[in-house]
Each structure stands twice: as structure tokens, then as C-alpha cells.
Simulated scan of single mutants.
Amino acid sequence: MEALLTLPWLCLGLFIFVAFTTEAMTGFGSIVIALSLGALLLPIEVILPVLVPLNIIMSGFFSWRYRAEIHWPTLLKLILPLMVAGTLAGYGLRPWLGDQLLKSLFGVLVLWFSSRELWRSWRGLDTHPHGPWAARLWTFLAGITHGLFASGGPLLVYALSGLSLPKTRFRATLILVWFCLNGLLTVVFALDGSLFPALAHLAVLVPVVIVAMVLGEFLHHRVNEARFRQAVFVVLWIAGLALAWPR
């Protein structure tokens, strides 16, 4: 029980609460925020078997709730085949990378993503669609980052820039992507043995996720989402810089 209450794990619980509240409000960020902050205190390979199953709770609930909005052709023809292949490839690369290199690469990814979003937000820039082959390449690369860090969202959003889907349909489709891919990763973690040491932490953190979901839904219609997203990206930029900084 003492191992569950050490300062790094208590901090991770706080990061998870903030991250999952953010995703319930805005539709993004549960793993990338929690992992960006948590990796400053704990190894990535220890955090991922905790964060990934927790995300299934949220993504499964919202996938069912907004199931009527899912755009199945985009999901089945474009996103899932390439993301699944990339996720398996990324997972296969993890044993070749040490924890410090993983943290540095993840920090670079977070820095790029947060810098891009802050620049677009402050300059009021519109997104421009990629060509079909470029979109497929970036989607596959998003799968690789998901296999490495369970954080394929930044590159996938970039890959699908300019996709002509209403915001609600785009969000619902992405949520189902995370449910499917994180379900796959959870099975992989069970097979490689990394899931079972995380079960005690999962049991403690499930109520945190449920409260975060309720709070995020409550705040969704009461908080200026654009300003909130800017604040989140500033935090991510700082965390990404700390992770990417050479040691």
C-alpha cells in the first residue's frame, strides 16, 4: 500500500485528474498531458500500462454516448488500418530505445505539437488539407507514436488537417480510434506482463478518472474552450521542453 502513496504516484494521480478532465472538456489530451507531466517523475514504461487502460474507460463511455456521430468510412478506410499497423510497429521499437531516449523523443513530439497549436491559435491560422498520400503517411507515423507513447493524437490531428468533417463527428471518430488502439495496447501489455504490476494503481485511479469525466462534462459548456486549450498547450510546451532537454 505504501508504494501506491509515494509522492511520484500521488502527483501522477493529480496529473491524471487534470488530463482526463481536459479530455472530457475538449476531446483531447488525457494521455499526452498525463504522460508529459508524469514522465518527469516516473519511467514511461511504468506509466503507460496505467494510463492506457484508464483511457479505455473514458473513450469507451464517450464512444458509446456519441456513437451516432462516428464517421465510419473515415475510421475504417483511412485511420484504423494505418494506425493499427503503426501502433504495432511503434511497440516493436520500444525495446530498442532506453527510457531517457523515449522521454527525449516524446518531449520533442510534445514541443512540436504544443508550439504548432499555440502559433495557430495566436495567429488565427486555418488548417490546410494534406494530399491523400501525405495524409496516409502521417497517419501511419501517428500510429508509430501511439505504439511508443500511446500518444498518437498530435500527429493524427495533423494528418487529418482540413478533413471535411463537422467538429462533433471528427471528435467522436477520434475517440473511437483511441478506444480501439488502447484496447489493442492493453492486450499487448497483458501479454508482455507489464499490465499486471499496474493493477493495484489502476484500482486506485479508476475513481479519479470517473470524477474527472463528470467534472469535464460539467465544465464543457461553462468554460471558454479556446482559452483553456491555450493554457493547456502552454503547460505542455513547458513539460515538453523539460523532457527534451539533454541530460
Rank of each mutant, 00 (worst) to 15 (best):
M1K: 10
E2T: 13
A3N: 13
L5V: 03
L5D: 01
P8A: 11
W9R: 10
L12M: 13
G13W: 04
F17W: 12
T21K: 06
T21L: 14
E23A: 03
M25Y: 01
T26D: 02
S30A: 15
I33E: 02
A34C: 06
A34M: 07
L41W: 15
L42H: 07
L42R: 07
L42Y: 04
P43N: 13
I44P: 08
E45G: 11
I47V: 14
L48M: 14
P49G: 02
V50S: 00
V52E: 02
I56N: 05
M58L: 15
S63Y: 06
H71R: 11
W72N: 02
W72S: 07
W72D: 00
P73K: 10
P73R: 08
T74Q: 13
T74D: 02
L76T: 11
P81Y: 03
P81A: 05
V84L: 15
V84F: 13
V84Q: 03
L88G: 07
L88F: 14
Y91I: 00
Y91R: 14
L93S: 02
W96G: 04
Q100M: 07
L101W: 11
L102T: 11
L105N: 01
F106E: 07
G107W: 02
V108K: 03
V110H: 06
V110S: 08
V110R: 04
L111C: 14
L111Q: 03
W112C: 10
W112M: 11
S115L: 15
R116W: 13
E117I: 05
L118W: 12
W119P: 01
G124V: 05
G124Q: 09
L125K: 07
P129R: 15
P129G: 12
P129V: 14
H130A: 14
W133R: 15
A135K: 15
W138G: 06
G143R: 09
T145R: 00
A150C: 06
G152D: 08
P154F: 06
L155Y: 06
L155W: 10
L155S: 01
Y158R: 14
A159P: 10
A159Y: 13
A159E: 11
A159V: 09
A159C: 11
L160D: 13
G162S: 12
P166G: 10
P166E: 15
K167F: 00
R171L: 00
R171Y: 02
L174R: 05
L174T: 05
L176R: 01
L176I: 11
V177I: 08
F179C: 11
N182V: 03
T186E: 09
V187P: 05
V187W: 14
F189R: 04
L191A: 12
S194I: 01
L195Q: 10
P197I: 02
A198T: 05
A198N: 04
A200Y: 10
A200I: 00
V204T: 06
L205E: 04
V211C: 08
A212G: 05
V214H: 07
L215P: 04
G216C: 10
L219S: 04
H220A: 12
H220V: 02
H220M: 07
H221V: 04
H221G: 00
H221Q: 13
E225L: 15
A226N: 12
R229Y: 02
Q230M: 08
Q230K: 14
A231M: 11
F233S: 00
V234P: 01
V235G: 01
I238T: 09
A239Q: 04
G240Y: 07
A242S: 02
A244R: 06
A244V: 03
A244P: 09
A244I: 03
A244Y: 09
W245V: 01
R247D: 14
R247C: 01
